[in-house]
Amino acid sequence: MFTNFGWIVEAKLKEGELENFKAVMNSQVNRALNEKGTLNYQYYLSDAGDILVYERFADADASHEHIENWDAHAERWISAAEPTRMLHLGDLPDDVRERHASLAPTWLKPLAGFAREEYEGSLIENGNDTSFENFGWIVEAKLNQGQFEAFKEVINSQVARAKTEEGTLNYQYYLSDEGDILVYERFRDLEASFIHIENWNDHAERWIAAATPTRMVHLGDLPQELREMHASLSPLLLKPLGGFAK
């Protein structure tokens, strides 16, 4: 099992606002680099203007500090992009949840998995801008009725095998009270992601019998050969735009 304090924000870039959005994003990121408890602050963008922000913090106090960063940028941010969805990831306290109440975030709590925290970050500095590389994806699904125990059994088998995969850095299952499933997966490199896909292939039939996949998002500038391996789920491709992972 793992602990997590964080969230995902999704938005749609407004027409003609890319440069304005990048300006406010870079201002936020530069400030967040000085927040000791902000571990991941990663912006992704699709070719069609879909935005995803992955945010992770050391603890609840660090998340409050970061929210103040957002408050100072919120007006400019929203003028350039329209928020569409928010997901809370982890056992977040009520005072954090209340600060995002206007976005009615879906709350997903850790179910199974791990994070290899000792792996070094992927920060790339380019003048006053920062970016990062990423090999990974998010899978979303809905738990099938009466299949909770069967689902736990298959994911526990997957997680046990993934722990033997040295290049699998994050393999984290979340579940909401309503049966919404989110899986966050991150890998050291392309080779590691291919090894992990073999894990999925060996479990796929049992997994899909217990839960119905609803969405997949590829996170990173992933090559076509990997994208084709997930073609049946028509994954949205979001490439790094700015931010960091410590």
Rank of each mutant, 00 (worst) to 15 (best):
P110N: 12
Y43C: 02
E140G: 02
N34T: 12
N126W: 02
L87W: 15
R215T: 11
L123Q: 09
A104E: 12
P110F: 10
A150D: 15
F132I: 08
T164A: 12
L103G: 01
Q42T: 06
T168Q: 02
Y43D: 01
L238Y: 00
A72W: 06
N170A: 05
M86Q: 14
V24D: 04
R85S: 13
H73P: 06
Q224W: 08
N126D: 10
D91W: 01
R31E: 14
L237S: 07
E15P: 08
M25E: 13
L89E: 01
D189R: 12
D61Q: 12
D91Q: 07
F57R: 02
Q172V: 00
A231L: 06
R215P: 04
E19Q: 13
E228T: 12
N40M: 11
S79I: 03
Q147K: 15
L33E: 12
D91L: 03
E140Q: 09
Y174F: 15
K142C: 01
A32I: 06
M25T: 11
F187H: 15
P83K: 00
Q145A: 14
L89I: 09
K14W: 08
Q224P: 01
E185C: 06
G167Y: 06
V53L: 09
T3N: 11
P83W: 05
M1T: 09
L87Q: 09
I208N: 13
S193K: 08
S232H: 14
Y173H: 13
N199F: 01
R186H: 13
G90S: 08
Y43Q: 05
L89G: 01
P110Q: 15
N69V: 15
Q172A: 03
W107E: 09
N126R: 10
Q147S: 12
A23D: 07
D91K: 05
H203D: 04
I181S: 01
M25V: 14
G243V: 02
R76P: 03
R227G: 11
Q147T: 06
N30T: 11
G16M: 10
R206P: 00
E165S: 04
E198S: 09
E178N: 11
L236E: 12
E120P: 04
Q158I: 05
E75I: 07
Y44K: 05
G146F: 08
F194G: 00
G113Q: 00
A74N: 08
Y174C: 00
P93N: 01
P105S: 03
P235G: 09
R76Q: 11
I195F: 10
D47K: 14
E118Q: 12
H66F: 06
P235Q: 14
A115E: 08
M1R: 07
E82H: 02
I155W: 03
L33R: 09
T168C: 10
L18F: 13
V9N: 06
E125Y: 02
I51W: 03
E165M: 08
G136K: 02
W77R: 14
P110S: 14
P110I: 06
E133M: 07
M216E: 07
N69C: 08
G179H: 05
D59H: 07
E98S: 11
G90A: 05
Q224N: 11
F132M: 03
E140K: 13
I138A: 07
W7L: 14
L13Q: 01
T214K: 11
I138D: 00
F135A: 05
F114N: 02
